[in-house]
């Protein structure tokens, strides 16, 4: 079984700050991580390989430094890593990204065997769009299984897969076919600790670096800024409200008095609330 998993290197969003005066992102020193949602997909891919045999190829598109993320994935036990990196990809929106990745997956398939499953995370923590996975599925004509909570069974001979999929208000049990694209739901498993052999292997083995040409992409107008129908016109920090929060003074007051004062301020602004709270609280 050949599994391809797409990951993304993202800035650790908990550590991004906005410059208070210039309103620009202070990027320096912000560490990068593998998009946390991707780790659930990576673990699922590794488990399937361990159960059914075969190989896991991990793929990312990004700047040269994204190699770090791929090495980490190799350290968890992935068999092969491909970095799609080229200046033509700069400024890609989700449509251009899914185009480039699907071309690279097709090339991976030609070179190392057609994938049975392509995995992706539910979404990324920086873009949060959840669109690249479905975009790849559509372009490669893979069955699309998003928000998968559990892979119930795979019958390789019959090319059949059964999954539990999160949907609005419940869980769908679906039967579908390989090859398919799966986006994994968060919290469905826990990424393993890589073995020592995998850690050594990750340090030794090379990450394949592919340019657009290496990935077999001929039409560069479909890549990067030129291949992106959306245009970011303006990036800005939201304006603060005209008046800041009215502060409850805490100086020289007991905790009890301060709490009473805050509560009184709440009920002054929302007089109807006191009634509602009294009857909701069911005291």
């Amino acid at each position: 079984m050949h599994i391809v998993i797409c990951i993304k290197q993202v800035p650790d969003s908990a550590q991004i700050r906005v410059h208070p005066v210039t309103n620009t992102i202070m990027r320096q020193g912000v560490p990068t991580i593998i998009n946390p949602y991707d780790l659930f997909a990576l673990e699922e891919a590794l488990r399937l390989r361990d159960a059914y045999g075969g190989e896991v190829t991990v793929l990312t598109m990004g700047p040269p430094m994204a190699e770090d993320a791929l090495r980490k994935a190799l350290g968890y036990g992935a068999d092969r890593a491909v970095l799609l990196t080229d200046r033509y990809f700069a400024g890609s929106d989700t449509l251009a990204t899914s185009f480039a990745l699907s071309q690279a997956i097709a090339k991976v398939g030609e070179t190392y065997g057609a994938p049975d499953i392509v995995f992706a995370g539910k979404q990324t923590i920086d873009g949060d769009t959840a669109q690249v996975g479905p975009g790849i599925a559509k372009r490669l004509d893979l069955l699309q299984l998003t928000y998968v909570a559990k892979i119930a069974s795979i019958d390789l001979a019959a090319r059949e897969i059964k999954v539990e999929r999160r949907s609005e208000g419940g869980t769908q049990m679906l039967k579908s076919r390989l090859p398919c694209l799966i986006t994994m739901l968060e919290g469905t498993n826990e990424i393993r600790r890589g073995s020592i052999e995998d850690a050594l292997g990750a340090a030794r083995s090379g990450v394949l670096k592919w340019s657009a040409a290496d990935a077999g992409i001929e039409d560069l107008t479909r890549c990067g800024l030129r291949g992106s129908p959306t245009v970011v016109k303006r990036v800005f920090a939201p304006a603060a409200r005209a008046e800041k929060a009215v502060q409850i003074d805490t100086a020289e007051k007991t905790l009890r008095d301060t709490a009473d004062e805050l509560m009184a301020a709440i009920f002054t602004r929302q007089p109807a609330l006191e009634h509602e709270l009294a009857f909701n609280s069911g005291a």
Binding site: D126, D128, P229, V231, V235, F236
Partner: peptide, 14 residues
């Protein structure tokens, strides 16, 4: 929101 929700951006499909 963009950049993990630290800024807002306005996007057009022209």
């Amino acid at each position: 929101p963009t950049f993990g929700g630290s800024l807002l951006c306005t996007i057009y499909t022209l």
